[in-house]
């Protein structure tokens, strides 16, 4: 993961977007920094609408959007020149060779023909397509077409790529390869990535940050560490003295919840000023309990998502 200080890639403030009577995005406020950011949410939550707003394809009914420091509604051409985009759908011109297709996309992003041809070839090679690049798109597998979509998105050297459901339709092996490729785009190609997905685990695996959408609203956003940050706590496993241990901690103001054979200990309001590990140590001594395991509580993105969506 990049250690460089994060810079703002895109942001929105109070963004409202309606399609007729349907509110696609409501008062959405978000900030996307460099690295890989996941737009996370179920189908219909507004992810694709947000991508459309970032590309300047839609105009927000209210609020403000900026991409690479520019307003895409006013300076859409300038924004799109520096942004790569891979759509969700798999339909591509079936009789066009992959090489010709990527070259054409490079040319419409302003590259001279010779440079476009060279970069198209390079980009297809980089995403793992060798001789297949001379085959018509209609003869490629879904996985290969996803790679072609990735190649056309990065071939013209954008500052940012927007990937709409990049693993859609892929089998588990292809999915792993695609996720690794997306991470490479950020780390090796040094291109910032925003990907939309309804799959929590893939966002958790490769993203530095996430913007979580639910029913057209941004319900949470930040780095994965920040998103998990409100869910601190310790997981404790005891062999002896569990009842006294729990009673002691509850008297000290902690919240203790059984989770199978483990106990999840979190700081309650009354214990807010105390170090949780110290409290667990003191409780173990006072209850004469035998501690088998003590680890920080890790929270999956799924728990965060369910929590903020609720």
């Amino acid at each position: 993961m990049a250690d460089a200080p994060a810079t703002e890639v895109a942001a929105g403030e109070g963004v409202l977007k309606r399609f007729g009577s349907t509110v696609a995005l409501s008062s959405a406020t978000f900030r996307i920094e460099s690295g890989v950011t996941g737009l996370l949410g179920p189908n219909g939550s507004g992810k694709t609408t947000l991508i459309g707003l970032l590309l300047g394809l839609h105009r927000a009914d209210a609020g403000r959007v900026s991409v690479l420091g520019l307003d895409p509604a006013r300076l859409g051409t300038a924004v799109r020149e520096r942004v790569g985009y891979a759509p969700e759908h798999h339909r591509l011109p079936p009789d066009v060779k992959a090489q010709d297709f990527v070259r054409h996309i490079c040319e419409i992003h302003g590259l001279p023909p010779r440079e476009a041809a060279a970069r198209a070839s390079d980009a297809l090679w980089q995403v793992g397509l060798g001789e297949e690049r001379f085959r018509p798109l209609g003869t490629l597998s879904t996985g290969q077409r996803q790679r072609v979509k990735m190649a056309q998105a990065v071939a013209h050297d954008p500052a940012l790529v927007l990937l709409d459901e990049p693993t859609d339709g892929l089998d588990p092996v292809q999915r792993d390869q695609m996720l690794a490729l997306i991470r490479r785009v950020a780390d090796e190609f040094e291109i910032d990535v925003v990907l939309s997905s309804h799959l929590l685990d893939e966002v958790e695996r490769i993203c530095d940050a996430a913007v979580i959408l639910s029913e057209g609203a941004v319900v949470a956003g930040g780095t994965l560490e920040e998103l998990r940050g409100d869910h601190d706590g310790l997981v404790v496993e005891l062999t002896v003295g569990a009842d006294a241990f729990v009673a002691w901690l509850r008297r000290a103001g902690c919240e203790v919840a059984p989770d199978g054979h483990r106990l999840v200990v979190t700081r309650g309001r009354a214990a807010a000023d105390h170090d949780l590990a110290d409290l667990v140590r003191d409780a173990t001594v006072a209850a004469e309990a035998q501690l088998r395991r003590l680890v920080p509580r890790t929270v999956s993105l799924e728990e965060v998502f369910l929590d903020v969506s609720a």
């Binding site: 020149e81 302003g110 590259l111 001279p112």
Partner: peptide, 23 residues
């Protein structure tokens, strides 16, 4: 050398129109 940056001139909207029209 892996992925290469492109620092050359871009033809902008006019180049895009020409390219799409020709293609």
């Amino acid at each position: 050398g892996g992925y290469r940056r492109y620092d050359g001139v871009r033809s902008g909207a006019r180049g895009a129109v020409e390219s799409v029209a020709l293609h």
